[in-house]
Amino acid sequence: MPKIVNHELRRLELVDATWRIIARHGIEGATMREIATEAGFANGALKPYFPTKDDLITFAFGHVFNRTNERIAERASGLVGLDALRAFCQEVLPLDEDRINEARIVIPFWQKALTDPAKAQLHEQSMDEWRATLDQHLRAARDRGEVSAAIRDEDIVNQLMSMLLGAQIIAAMSPDEHLPKQLTDQLDAYLELLK
Rank of each mutant, 00 (worst) to 15 (best):
E70M: 12
R131T: 05
P94S: 01
I100D: 04
D54P: 07
G62C: 08
Q186K: 14
G26M: 02
K112C: 07
H63M: 03
G26T: 00
I170T: 11
L122Q: 15
D155S: 15
L46K: 00
Q136T: 14
R24P: 04
N43K: 15
T31A: 03
V92S: 00
K53M: 11
L79I: 08
A60M: 01
G81H: 01
V15P: 02
P48N: 01
D83V: 02
F88I: 07
H7N: 00
S162W: 13
T58A: 14
T184F: 03
I156L: 07
D188Q: 09
E177P: 00
A84H: 09
L138F: 06
M163C: 11
L14V: 06
I27C: 06
H25I: 02
P51M: 08
S148F: 01
L12M: 13
I170V: 15
L191G: 05
N43S: 13
L56W: 10
D143L: 05
E177Y: 13
N101F: 01
P180K: 03
H123M: 14
C89W: 02
L191W: 04
D185R: 11
L191M: 01
V5W: 05
R152D: 15
K47M: 06
L14P: 06
A42P: 03
A118P: 10
L114I: 13
